[in-house]
Design a binder for these strands. Sequence first.
DNA 1: ATAGGCCCCGGCGAATGGTG
DNA 2: CACCATTCGCCGGGGCCTAT
Length: 556
Amino acid sequence: MTNENEQTKLVTTTRVTLFGSWNVRSCYRVTKRELIVRQLKRYRIQVAALAETKIPDSGVCVVNGYTFIYSAVCLGPEASAAWKNSGAQWEAVSSRIVTARIECRPEPITIIAVYAPINPSNGVKNDIETCDEFYKTLQATIDKTHKSDMIMIMGDFNARVGVEQANTAGGTVGNHTIDKQNQNGRRFVDFCLFNSFIITNTFFPHKAVHQGTWMHPKTKQWHMLDYVLVNRKFRSNVQDVRAHRGATGGIGTDHHLLRAKIRLHLKCPNENKSIRRDNKTLSVNEKFTNFVNSVLERGRHYFGNNKSIHKGGKEWFTPELKEIVDKKAKAYADWQLHRSTTNENKYRNRYRTLAKIVQKKVYAKQHEYWEELSIDIENAVKVHDPTTAFQIIRRLRGSRQSINHIPVQDKNGLTLTNSKDQLNRWKEYFDEMLNVDTTINEQVLQQIPSPTVDDEELSRQDAVPTLDEVVKAIGQIKNKKVPGKDDVPAELLKAGGHYIAEWLHEIICDVWEQEVMVKEWTEAIIIRLYKNKGDKRICDNYRGISLLDVAGKIFV
DNA sequence: ATAGGCCCCGGCGAATGGTG
DNA sequence: CACCATTCGCCGGGGCCTAT
């Protein structure tokens, strides 16, 4: 899909893969994500490190074939395949650092996407501490990588590398710098020296406009703040690094896209081994991942923050919208061209009006899709559940023993270690919700009249809560207003009522039967499911309720 | 039985606060 | 200064209650 035509023919083993580093200043909304993907596609970037995504959680989602490992890495289709092929490892070390490992030729590559703290202004203690912490974490992360790997650290370092460092820094810094060093810059170069990384940006001669990635709003000076680092021994693999200004206007950001040409070959499977069919051979975790993928992603659910979950996909981005976004991008380019001329204001205003229109339209679109979402969920649940999701759940449930008995090997591989953070986070959510809603908790629990039949049922068959019970619980919640909050789930329940209930039931069954670990997983699912509604209030309530549901069943 | 009032909510723009 | 997310405040619609 990308660069077959030119490079592949030359030398097959050394295909060029394009890497990007981009401060996108939010990829909070899925609309924004799609815009980003669009630009990445345009620049044929397979692996991108995004900075300032403003996504508080970590996790994985897919947009138009691009895999977002948020909060910071975005993988193109091929890279995604290669990544999945090599075990889909990722880790959100901190909110500022995300790593992913991909099998490549000649060496596996560890990508570290970073977003460094801003330059501490005149020794403010807090800032310095965050910087220290950041570099400490980064160092620790590097220490953990495979020694033979090619390591690429990409991202917004908020550091300025000085001309004067080119000579002193022992080959770490090239001759093509544009800045005076600042405090972060010093730290940054020290760090590179220590780990023998090279700052690839500075090795390639370009026009100044193709080097700077960010313009200081006041001084109008362009600075090089985004960097691509690579370990020294892989220096020769880097063919070029430069900034591309064209991508900036398409999404609202003030940073330019930094693109690196790296000579390496992504090891993707010739056929993306049909993911869902061969379940037998899959480990539990893979099953789980598949489950999440197939169900959540199929329904196009994006989780991450309560507002940003909705179906993504093809249709919202209409030609009309596309056109206007392009127009906006063009307007931005024009504006940049006329900076500090008499006409600047004209171009600026044009850009601004266009930007406003785009914002409005995109927003409208998004809302349309939220509207459709309930239907979407219903369909997803209705159509895909019986065939895939439910099966997977059952299989999951069926392989309960294996979950319990399978040694660490199965669990540790990818999902567990890497998403430890996530699990903890979900747990936090869980705890939080429970704590916050304790009052409601009681009320709701009282409302659930603990049907006697169900008690028998419970003890009789597998001690699972029955579907009835779930339905009833939901019904109760729906009918009866919870004081202080409103009877929100009605909508969603109306849309997906029965199926949702079944779904919940399945999950609760799992929760009921299985160990803590799995419980947390399923809770995660539940949370995500209910976060899908998009609206914050609904989310909160629903999530609360669903958790209460689970909690009620489990703990009472 | 119907009309009118009240309340609640979602939608939307403007203002605000925070960030680089 | 530009951008982003959030909040505030206003408006209009619909449901529900009540008064005639």
